[in-house]
């Protein structure tokens, strides 16, 4: 269990930008330590991806659960989250305690455009990953229709985001194979 914790603690320090980059690292370590078979790992990635929350943390709880039960899952998640709590706290101290507003403004001036690019990139990755499933022409058409309708629901009618997810699930079950 100590190995499990230390491994995920180490990963926690490098999980910038959502944690998609951690998946291959967890896969390698699982194979090396004999935590999971390749097949079980692929299933775990699917479940982690379709669950709410960050995919790396989800994957950590599944790997932890498979190796050491609930305690393993808690240990893995704690390892993954602890570094980001510490670093976020450090950022907080810097920003809110010092209150050097001018420098914060300057920091955000460059940071926010990069963050916007990161979010757009997440859209791109998600979309490309989805287009890889089966006929991509049909997928793309379906995706554009969902984005269009979802956008109208969200912006024009100000519907709750969960309604867009439910709508897209029903549409997927009806039109995708």
């Amino acid at each position: 269990m100590g190995t499990l914790f230390l491994f995920f603690l180490r990963l926690g320090f490098v999980s910038f930008g959502g944690g998609y980059a951690l998946i291959p690292m967890i896969e390698q370590e699982s194979a090396r330590q004999g935590w999971m078979t390749q097949d079980a790992f692929l299933n775990a990635v699917t479940v982690a991806g379709m669950s709410p929350g960050p995919i790396a943390v989800n994957l950590g709880s599944i790997v932890g659960y498979r190796t050491n039960g609930i305690a393993g899952a808690i240990v893995a998640v704690a390892g993954l989250i602890l570094p980001s709590i510490l670093m976020t706290a450090a950022l907080l101290l810097l920003i809110y305690r010092l209150r050097k507003q001018l420098w914060i403004d300057r920091l955000f001036y460059g940071l926010q455009p990069v963050v916007t690019a990161l979010i757009l990139f997440a859209v791109y990755r998600l979309g490309i990953g989805r287009l890889g499933h089966g006929a991509w022409g049909g997928q793309l058409l379906f995706g554009l229709v969902i984005i269009g309708l979802g956008w109208v629901m969200l912006v024009r009618y100000r519907m709750h985001p969960i309604l867009i997810l439910i709508f897209s699930a029903i549409a997927g079950a009806a039109f995708l194979t």
């Binding site: 379709m50 926010q112 455009p113 963050v115 916007t116 979010i119 757009l120 997440a122 859209v123 998600l126 979309g127 990953g129 989805r130 499933h133 997928q139 379906f142 995706g143 969902i146 984005i147 979802g150 956008w151 969200l154 912006v155 985001p161 867009i164 997810l165 709508f167 897209s168 699930a169 029903i170 549409a171 997927g172 079950a173 039109f175 995708l176 194979t177």
Partner: peptide, 29 residues
């Protein structure tokens, strides 16, 4: 069927993230 529904949800998520990008982008750019 479950897989197809999840495939649909991916596009719903894409929509939500695009919206988030617009909101952040409006204060960023």
């Amino acid at each position: 069927k479950v897989r197809a529904a999840l495939g649909g949800v991916t596009w719903g998520i894409v929509t939500l993230i695009l919206f988030a990008a617009l909101r952040i982008g409006r204060s960023a750019i």
